[in-house]
């Protein structure tokens, strides 16, 4: 099962027939396993890793460290939910260290992101402070190099 997940994590466009050949199972087994993984919510979604910068469609991302006071009974979960329900919020992690939540916010301009942080995020009840870091360049994301595609340097025929 983990084998299939690892394969899908690298390339989710492979067909059940191909995954079956790769793992020594039947296509039917693979289909059933994947359906089960989807149903259990282990596979959350299928997506592409995109270098938006190359499309000319500029998207601004900011990493925002948020310090909050946790709430009795629910800890950080309730406040995290209050934050992640905003569509502008791309990712939310609970982290150890000086801050509590790391929030990734997406917007069309720096101004838009900054206003979102000032007006929405910073004013959420129990948020003590925010610290915004605008993302300037992606070098690697989800295991993919963005900067230098590694080319095949081998000779075409080698014994």
């Amino acid at each position: 099962m983990n084998e299939i997940l690892k394969i899908l994590e690298t390339d989710c466009r492979l067909s059940p027939e191909e995954i079956a050949a790769m793992t020594g199972r039947t296509p039917k087994e693979v289909k059933e396993l994947i359906a089960d993984l989807e149903e259990k919510g282990i596979i959350r979604r299928y997506k592409a890793v995109i270098d938006w910068e190359k499309t000319g469609d500029e998207r601004i991302f900011a990493l925002i460290d948020v310090k909050v006071s946790p709430e009795r009974g629910v800890g950080f979960d309730a406040i995290a939910e209050q934050i992640y329900r905003y569509p502008e919020v791309h990712t939310v992690y609970l982290v150890s260290g000086l801050h509590d939540l790391r929030v990734v916010v997406e917007g069309k301009s720096m101004k838009e992101v900054a206003f979102f942080v000032a007006e929405k995020l910073a004013t959420v009840d129990r948020v003590q402070s925010t610290s915004t870091h605008f993302l300037l360049k992606r070098y690697k994301e989800d295991g993919v190099f963005f900067d230098i595609p590694e080319s095949d340097k081998r000779l075409a025929i080698v014994p």
Binding site: E150, D152, K153, R154, L155, A156, I157
Partner: peptide, 11 residues
């Protein structure tokens, strides 16, 4: 497309 290379494709 070369399947003629007797070495790993991994760097």
């Amino acid at each position: 497309v070369s399947l003629g290379v007797g070495e790993p494709d991994f760097v």
